Simulated scan of single mutants.
Amino acid sequence: MKREVIGDAVLYLADCREVLPTLQRVAAVIVDPPYGIGDTDARARATKWQRAAGMEAREWDREPVSELAEVLALGDVQVVWGGNYYPLKPSRGWLTWFKPDAPPSMASLELAWTNLDRNARQFSWSIGATNAERVGHPTQKPLALMRWCQEQAGNPASVLDAYMGSGTTGVAAVMAGASFIGIEREPAYFDIACRRIEQAQRQAALFAHDAPAAMEQAGLGF
Score class of each variant (00 low, 15 high):
residue 131 N to D: 12
residue 123 F to R: 06
residue 152 Q to E: 14
residue 50 Q to K: 12
residue 31 V to F: 06
residue 196 R to K: 09
residue 30 I to Q: 02
residue 192 I to H: 00
residue 170 G to K: 01
residue 120 A to L: 10
residue 210 D to W: 05
residue 1 M to P: 13
residue 149 C to G: 11
residue 24 Q to S: 15
residue 37 I to G: 11
residue 214 A to E: 15
residue 19 V to Y: 03
residue 37 I to W: 04
residue 37 I to Y: 03
residue 196 R to W: 02
residue 177 G to V: 07
residue 190 F to E: 06
residue 58 R to Y: 06
residue 82 G to K: 08
residue 92 R to H: 08
residue 56 E to S: 11
residue 113 W to I: 11
residue 56 E to M: 10
residue 218 A to M: 15
residue 213 A to R: 11
residue 83 G to T: 01
residue 138 P to D: 08
residue 91 S to E: 07
residue 207 F to A: 13
residue 216 E to G: 04
residue 54 G to I: 03
residue 20 L to H: 00
residue 203 Q to T: 12
residue 21 P to C: 03
residue 201 Q to V: 13
residue 188 A to P: 00
residue 207 F to C: 13
residue 183 I to H: 06
residue 13 L to K: 02
residue 192 I to R: 08
residue 167 G to E: 07
residue 119 N to Q: 12
residue 189 Y to E: 08
residue 57 A to H: 05
residue 38 G to S: 10
residue 215 M to D: 07
residue 21 P to N: 04
residue 108 S to E: 12
residue 136 G to W: 02
residue 112 A to K: 05
residue 149 C to H: 03
residue 110 E to A: 09
residue 96 T to M: 09
residue 157 A to I: 02
residue 102 A to D: 10
residue 33 P to K: 10
residue 42 A to W: 05
residue 164 M to Y: 12
residue 194 C to A: 12
residue 216 E to L: 15
residue 212 P to F: 03
residue 160 L to T: 01
residue 106 M to A: 14
residue 149 C to R: 00
residue 94 W to A: 09
residue 28 A to R: 00
residue 135 V to A: 13
residue 215 M to S: 03
residue 132 A to W: 02
residue 190 F to Y: 13
residue 22 T to V: 07
residue 220 L to D: 07
residue 7 G to A: 05
residue 69 A to Y: 02
residue 57 A to Y: 05
residue 110 E to F: 06
residue 6 I to E: 10
residue 164 M to C: 08
residue 199 Q to C: 09
residue 73 A to S: 09
residue 177 G to L: 02
residue 60 W to P: 01
residue 186 E to S: 03
residue 71 V to W: 02
residue 204 A to G: 06
residue 124 S to Q: 15
residue 74 L to I: 02
residue 155 N to I: 13
residue 97 W to D: 02
residue 33 P to V: 12
residue 3 R to T: 15
residue 70 E to L: 01
residue 65 V to R: 08
residue 16 C to Y: 12
residue 21 P to M: 04
residue 144 A to K: 03
residue 22 T to P: 08
residue 100 P to V: 11
residue 78 Q to T: 01
residue 150 Q to R: 08
residue 192 I to L: 14
residue 208 A to K: 08
residue 181 I to T: 14
residue 56 E to W: 07
residue 196 R to Q: 04
residue 4 E to R: 14
residue 134 R to P: 04
residue 219 G to R: 13
residue 17 R to I: 04
residue 83 G to H: 00
residue 216 E to W: 11
residue 167 G to S: 04
residue 22 T to L: 14
residue 141 K to P: 06
residue 201 Q to N: 07
residue 126 S to Y: 07
residue 124 S to T: 14
residue 130 T to P: 04
residue 49 W to V: 11
residue 143 L to Q: 03
residue 120 A to V: 08
residue 124 S to D: 10
residue 146 M to Y: 14
residue 214 A to W: 01
residue 199 Q to L: 13
residue 148 W to F: 04
residue 183 I to P: 00
residue 135 V to R: 13
residue 28 A to N: 06
residue 205 A to R: 12
residue 202 R to C: 04
residue 129 A to G: 06
residue 13 L to D: 11
residue 26 V to I: 02
residue 81 W to G: 07
residue 87 P to R: 00
residue 196 R to S: 00
residue 107 A to T: 10
residue 79 V to H: 06
residue 102 A to L: 06
residue 178 A to P: 03
residue 219 G to F: 12
residue 85 Y to D: 06
residue 111 L to A: 12
residue 186 E to R: 10
residue 123 F to W: 09
residue 139 T to M: 09
residue 21 P to A: 05
residue 152 Q to V: 05
residue 45 R to T: 07
residue 83 G to M: 05
residue 122 Q to P: 05
